[in-house]
Simulated scan of single mutants.
Amino acid sequence: MTVSLYDRLGGYDAIAMFASRLVDQAKSDDQLGRFWANRGDDRIARELQLLIDYLVRETGGQMYYTGRQMLQAHAGMGISESDWKRFIEIVTGVAGELGVGAPEDGEVMAFLDALKSDIVNV
């Protein structure tokens, strides 16, 4: 039996911790922080929960995602190639802090690479 990426990453709690640290670091980042500027705490909390739901679903967990598709959600945000590279640096750093193994890290990076064209729009 094949074990899902969701289970290999540690399930809901581990994915929620990853997403929370990722968003916290990106919000305070000099380059990426502008995407969270002028947003209320309630909106940021909702977006974080949507990110968690999305990641849980996409990695094989049992979660219903109610958010928009990535292309629609990121349209008009002005996300550049430079922003994407910085985001990936943060993802890699957080994954390392949490002890994500090489096979899982590779799967996560392949998943993110598949989303890039829907997110980078400058």
Rank of each mutant, 00 (worst) to 15 (best):
M1N: 15
T2C: 13
V3A: 09
V3S: 13
Y6W: 04
D7C: 05
D7L: 12
D7W: 05
D7E: 15
G10H: 05
G11V: 03
Y12A: 14
Y12W: 11
A14Y: 03
A14F: 00
I15Q: 08
F18R: 06
A19V: 14
A19R: 05
S20G: 08
L22T: 04
D24L: 02
D24W: 01
Q25K: 09
Q25T: 04
K27D: 09
K27P: 07
S28Q: 11
D30A: 09
Q31S: 01
L32Q: 03
G33L: 00
F35C: 00
W36V: 02
R39I: 02
R43K: 14
R43I: 13
R46Y: 12
L51T: 14
L51I: 12
L51C: 04
I52A: 10
D53A: 06
D53T: 06
Y54Q: 14
V56T: 15
R57E: 15
R57S: 15
E58P: 04
G60Q: 02
G61L: 08
M63Y: 11
Y65M: 06
Y65N: 10
T66I: 13
G67M: 05
R68F: 07
Q69K: 14
Q69R: 14
M70L: 13
M70Y: 05
M70C: 07
L71F: 04
A73T: 06
A73W: 08
M77P: 11
G78S: 14
G78E: 01
G78H: 10
E81D: 14
E81H: 13
S82Y: 02
D83Q: 10
R86W: 01
I88N: 05
I88V: 12
V91E: 03
T92Y: 10
T92I: 04
T92S: 09
G93F: 02
G93C: 00
V94N: 03
G96M: 00
E97N: 09
L98N: 04
G101A: 13
P103R: 02
E104Q: 14
E107G: 07
E107M: 06
V108H: 04
A110E: 11
F111C: 03
L112C: 05
D113L: 11
L115W: 02
L115T: 09
K116D: 02
K116P: 07
D118W: 09
V120T: 05
N121A: 10
